[in-house]
Design a protein around this nucleic acid. Structure first.
Lengths: 345, 345
DNA sequence: TGCCGTAATGCAAGCCTTTACATTCTTGCC
DNA sequence: GGCAAGAATGTAAAGGCTTGCATTACGGCA
């Protein structure tokens, strides 16, 4: 008996083994597993019991080879250590699971060269589709993805000028809204602490949003000091300190993300600077942390989870070859909290 | 010309195409790609140029099928929204990349049934090895993994009684150390806010650590109120409030993790309770947040990144079939900060 | 009862790479 | 110049599944 032999040799059971034991063809077994409704109840029962008896589980490589699908989606994010990406990714993975897909993760550390390497790596690893953050990217990468027939979806931003599908929000408009609130309270001496602008379209858009609001308010002649730094509480603290030591001390510091803002808040406390009395500080993202700081942080709420969920749905659609999905823009709203108040000066 | 045909039909180039164009056999091309030193320089140059011209990239399924290796490692964590897992996972992924492996991620939401489903799913998706969190698990799962010849590595904890390899730290001993400090300052009325103990060996070990310290100090007769709740700032806040309303008000509240502790701190402030004067609060994990709160949080520093990095190295070793690696125990040290002080009462 | 249309199942051709083994080429040395 | 040993390359089998197409079974209707 061959089944017995299988057990003894500890070789995994194959479709063939299952078929033989159930007294059907391999095609029928395959159909039981992949599209059960095509198989009549009685047959299916026989097959499933054989599957169970043999502890059969399909060979991944063979399956991929025959079906040309891995049912795997790749995501390349700057870093999971940033809570916003972690949260979005979590939602993305949960929805992917519901859809029967698995998540492949890689990180770029905000470096374009690494991102490209990771994109190629995930495609080589058989990702059926790819989630990317932001639009900034060498066009050659998109050509590569097209050539490989791997659909991709951009998130965390939307861009009217980009013809590629994306799901995100308008970083520039949201930051403009926030800056309007700040200016509306009477602030004139603004300053910005931003993530590196060169390789980060979201950061760039946010800074542009601040400029938009100043222009709107007729303040475009005023200086707008901008400090660029990388993502960390400590860097936010340093940037804040340097801004407060400059010739024209700002009355409001708008930070490109909450983590930088939390750093600024901390340093303000350490320096004995009263927030929001002496200076207002704002963030962007609305991570959980923003409600816990003292004072609580005025920021822009980004629907990270919703974005991740929608991205998963859209990407699966694309992978399944549905009609090309169009860009989805979600709402990111200003959250006014205690760290913003009218200037004392 | 067949190469031309390929281009026209937009079918991806195969090994065969490359071989033909380079005027060698498929075996030689394969060797050029997988073990270049086996091929003489001149031949390799020809082949690589053909690879480049054709934009060839190996078919993942076929490769997996022939090599019986996906070069993919799976990780199943409770959730990426918890910063400690996100950080560990990030380090894990970075090291995996260095080792030439790719990361497959799934989450269990702290649910055993979901975890099992995800384990089977990742194995079915071809994971060469698996990273798991904690020891608590149906033995049948390990049998399954053994049967499938998928090595697994447990992290976030070490357990002398478990014969399976792990890389982590001693949750119980670390919490005992922290509780010793608390008791050493004169606290007698302790209370604990813990993650759900039932399905979480780390949480259980930490609570046991507190009990150990009390027993050591001859305080085992004193009551030790324990509130179990799930991971979130808000839940930490609620648990703290309920503890402070009980008949015997604690002078020190030891939290199972920093997030719960931050919630406790927040509620303390909201209730006008002075920390650490009226009550001390401690956490566990030492997330970045712990240094930003007011007052800063006494906690246990867990080397998440180091753990992730080591885990990746060990798991890759295991997958490559090296000698069975043994358990590695890292050090998790107490960090004394402002939220802990001697009791006023 | 016989025939037809449809549902269920079987057959067998790929899918593309890796690798054990076979063969051919080099090179150094007598 | 001839030979042996080792290096380089070639041959061809194997790997397990999916799926288009062919075949068989079934049920209803005349």
């Amino acid at each position: 008996m061959d089944d017995r032999e299988r057990k003894l040799t500890k070789t995994a059971a194959t479709l063939h083994d299952v078929a033989r034991r159930a007294g059907v063809s391999t095609a029928t077994v395959s159909r039981c597993l992949n599209s059960p409704k095509q198989v009549v109840e009685a047959t299916r029962a026989k097959v499933m019991s054989a599957v169970h008896d043999l502890g059969y589980s399909p060979n991944f490589g063979a399956r991929v080879m025959a079906a040309k699908r891995t049912h795997t989606i790749g995501a390349i994010i700057p870093t999971m250590e940033n809570a916003i990406f972690a949260r979005g990714l979590q939602a993305f993975q949960e929805e992917l699971r519901v859809q029967g897909y698995t998540l492949l993760v890689a990180s770029s550390s905000y470096r374009a060269d690494l991102e490209e390497e990771q994109i190629r790596s995930l495609v080589a690893r058989g990702a059926d589709g790819l989630l990317l953050i932001g639009h900034d990217r060498d066009p050659a990468i998109y050509e590569f993805l097209d050539a490989q027939h791997v659909p991709s979806l951009v998130t965390w931003t939307t861009d009217a000028t980009a013809e590629r599908p994306s799901v995100g929000f308008d970083n520039r408009a949201s930051m403009r809204d926030l800056a309007r609130s700040v200016i509306g309270m009477g602030h004139r001496q603004l300053a910005v602490i931003s993530a590196e602008i060169g390789s980060n379209d979201r950061a760039r858009a946010r800074v542009d949003g601040v400029k938009d609001a100043m222009t709107e308010a007729g303040l475009s002649d005023l200086p707008l000091p901008i400090v660029e730094t990388t993502y960390s509480i400590e860097n936010g603290a340093r940037a804040f300190e340097s801004l407060m030591q400059s010739a024209v001390v700002p009355t409001a510091v708008l930070c490109g993300n909450d983590v930088l803002a939390v750093g600024a808040l901390r340093r303000a406390r350490e320096l004995g600077i009263d927030v929001p009395v002496q200076v207002s500080i704002t963030g962007f993202d609305d991570i959980e942390l923003a409600q816990v700081t003292v004072p609580s942080l005025t920021t822009v709420h980004v629907p990270h989870r919703e974005m991740g969920r929608r991205a998963a749905q859209m990407l699966v659609q694309m992978v399944k070859g549905a009609a090309p999905v169009k860009t989805v823009e979600l709402l990111a709203e200003v959250c006014l909290r205690a760290s913003l108040a009218p200037p004392a000066r």
